[in-house]
Design a binder for these strands. Sequence first.
DNA 1: GAGTGGTCTAGACCACTCA
DNA 2: GAGTGGTCTAGACCACTCA
Lengths: 243, 243
Amino acid sequence: MPALPSDERLPLYQRLRDALARHISENRWKAGEAIPTEAVLAADYDLSIGTVRKAIDMLVSERILERQQGRGTFIRRAQFQDSLFRFFRFQTAEGERRIPQSQVLAVDVLPAPAEAAKALQLPDGEPVIHLSRLRLIDGQPVLAEDIWLPKGPFEAILGKDLNQEGPLLYPLYEEFCGQVIASADETLTAEPADERSAGLLGIAAHSPVVLIERLARGYAGQPLEWRRSRGHAQHFRYSVEIR
Amino acid sequence: MPALPSDERLPLYQRLRDALARHISENRWKAGEAIPTEAVLAADYDLSIGTVRKAIDMLVSERILERQQGRGTFIRRAQFQDSLFRFFRFQTAEGERRIPQSQVLAVDVLPAPAEAAKALQLPDGEPVIHLSRLRLIDGQPVLAEDIWLPKGPFEAILGKDLNQEGPLLYPLYEEFCGQVIASADETLTAEPADERSAGLLGIAAHSPVVLIERLARGYAGQPLEWRRSRGHAQHFRYSVEIR
DNA sequence: GAGTGGTCTAGACCACTCA
DNA sequence: GAGTGGTCTAGACCACTCA
């Protein structure tokens, strides 16, 4: 019978949740697999079923686990279909939400610029990975992106040819680096296009662009990616639901 | 002992949640007041405490109720402090989130224009209340707003002098009309300013503005307000958290 | 029919609030 | 100290899945 680690003053369901979350993040069970049944967990940890259910409820509401009545409780696969649009709010002028193609222009390692260091909560000048990337719809550029990642956790993507992969980075972060994006803060502003962005987007310099700054975080709230996307204001459309 | 109405095939906690939600929406208990204790509800409805807690859990996660250990469970006050920024994502250029002043320019009743009718799910030409409103910071116009409301539920605001009230409409909807805004969908686009907006905002015609279209809904998801806000792109800043 | 999660009970005891 | 919500137990029975 494994003992629950972690602070004894916390409720048992919280401690069980933490223990299960750690097992999952250490890949004790793989995505798509079932975890042990509620009855087995209750017996193993010497808890009542109700307490086990409460711990699992938490992980389900965090979208880490998924229940299927009669079958079991499963590690949630970072589902392409599901997560696809969760972080994608930029639409075509017609309101369509097609995933734009991705073209990675450059990958380099450099000392973190001040703004990136601040966003990622790194010491100034700490090495970061910088991606320059273009998003296209029907071959037309719609977004020019600069992406900064802390080098340590994301080192594994340096060896990959990102243009051989799908158009979304977050599944790659998970597959290659074991880093899961759980939430993000975005701020939108408008500015005149600088020459580099104008060139990439194929628009006149100084014409208005929308700038989307995104800080993406992991399950523990730690900053994992800082991103700046610029798109032509004319073709800009962004949707959000406020609850 | 009141019987639970609603479909017998639903779980008891779901039916109790629905019954409590109905009481709240019918103002059986007022905002800020405590509902009966869990033990009393369990006795009244002849349920176990666990089932009552599960129903209350649902309403808490819907932000309709609020628990305070040792004190009771309270109807969530549409808290000025809390809700103030919940629907307010437009910031000053400096990222400040001051509530802009409100200046209502016109209130009229007219047949719903096609777009407003569609958004509010009303038959074409149904009478609606239209507000034209300017938002200012330090006396400078920052947003020009057009607001459409279904006439029936909002008739009570027609008699009020809205410029004698606070700068936020949602508390007034609640106070005067008993209509509570629970969620909203927003879509942002950019466009050149038409002459009316340019005049209101004090900017050159055809200079770029950001257009925010908002559909606000009640607890049951029914559309309650459709709003179009235009602001100068240069001073535009919008923040959102994605979960 | 064996095994899974889903609902529900009838409590006990604890932490916190407030007069 | 009385009253509140918070945690936890040890089940029973149900609905669903799957061989």
